[in-house]
Amino acid sequence: MDLAWMAWTTPTAIFFSLIALMLIGMTVWAIIKPQAPRRGILRIETTPGDRLFISLLGSAFICLLWLSLFGSPLWWALVFCACFMVSVFKWV
């Protein structure tokens, strides 16, 4: 199958593979050990899937903010994203 029209590159392929792996991992985790929704600091009920969504969306905005303020590279932004993800999974 010719996928040249999709203009794939190694970094974008790695990016999407990581997201797919995260989703598969979370699905397997939810099947093996179903978790109850909980209320965190946002006072809304969240499942682990919700927390992953919040983490990814928040990380995207952290990266955009970094790019608009400081430009690339994004290494420090990724550190902030990792901290944000850990915080979301711990407290949200």
Binding site: A4, W5, M6, A7, W8, T9, P11, T12, F15, F16
Partner: peptide
Amino acid sequence: LMTVVNYAFQDSFGNNEF
């Protein structure tokens, strides 16, 4: 959407060259 993400990191002058 994936295609749009791929395009966002590349420049193209047509002919499927990125």
